[in-house]
Amino acid sequence: MTDELLEVDHLTMTFAGGAGEVRAVDDVSLRVRAGECVGVVGESGSGKSMLARTLLQLLPPVDVLRCEGSIRLEGRELLGSDYRSVRTDGLSMVFQEPLSYLNPTMRIGQQIAEGLPNDVANRDRVSAVRAALAQVELPASLEIERRYPHELSGGMRQRAMIALALATRPRVLIADEPTTALDVTVQAQLLRTLYELHRRKQMGLVIITHDLGIVANMCDRVYVMYAGQIVEEAETLTLFDAPQHPYTKALLDCRPGHTDRREVNERLRGPVPDLSALDGACRFRNRCEFAATECATEPSLDRIGEAHAARCGVLPFVGLGVKWGGSRS
């Protein structure tokens, strides 16, 4: 497949935690094609934000021990290269809390201008900033470029953040919980803007979220993360129709309005495993309703269909013809 923009293979990021080495990202492989929207879902602490930061090498350098594996953008290996140039051309990111991720003492326009490529001449910078704001539906009449972050509403701030990320002209944009801090009506508008932008620019879009509704509406393919690993990957429809990993199914059953919700919550009780003290068993075993003796060894991510893979030693639903269509919202 030649249209793959971002190819990540066996990416592992180890950092020094309180109780020894922690693999916050463990053997993650993923693909993003041009114009494709990919979701990464998982609960808090599953390592999805760490994955995003590892891709952009935006981790606090002192804590990170190693990054292994391969991150290729349009065929170019990024790991070990000068990351400053990667961030200025190719990969960019939008964060969850625009207020804390923007400089409070600098006007929005200046902050966006800093991300513009160097080949934009000085006299074109003002119009380039205005264009960046216009494409996230902040019209020039609002003069957002002259405002400070605290003068904007949450939705406007996040739009400004997207404009800032787009100023570097990324081929792949990673959005880490882009709407979690916003109220629901603003969420929908912002996601639509993001979606239309990525389609129009044929840009790869990675949405990191715990909200399966967003995934269902926007993503072509989904990666489910648990305890630093990818436990299932599938096309969105497949994932919602026939989830194979017990964790994926539990996530789907947790959606609001689902009948078994309380029962699932009960079942999912129990901690996410401590990544510094893994025992070599399946990481989901302590919370899994299908846990069996096979689960004492760590399963591998096995392909179970075209574009569908799951990391489960039991794979309870394979061959049973089980369809979870009833759970689609």
Partner: peptide
């Protein structure tokens, strides 16, 4: 977090120190 954003923009460390 705002420094993460500044790094995201690919600006140099002296520039980050001075401007941000």
């Amino acid at each position: 977090d705002q420094i993460t954003t500044a790094r995201l923009k690919g600006i140099s460390r002296p520039h980050i120190l001075r401007r941000h």
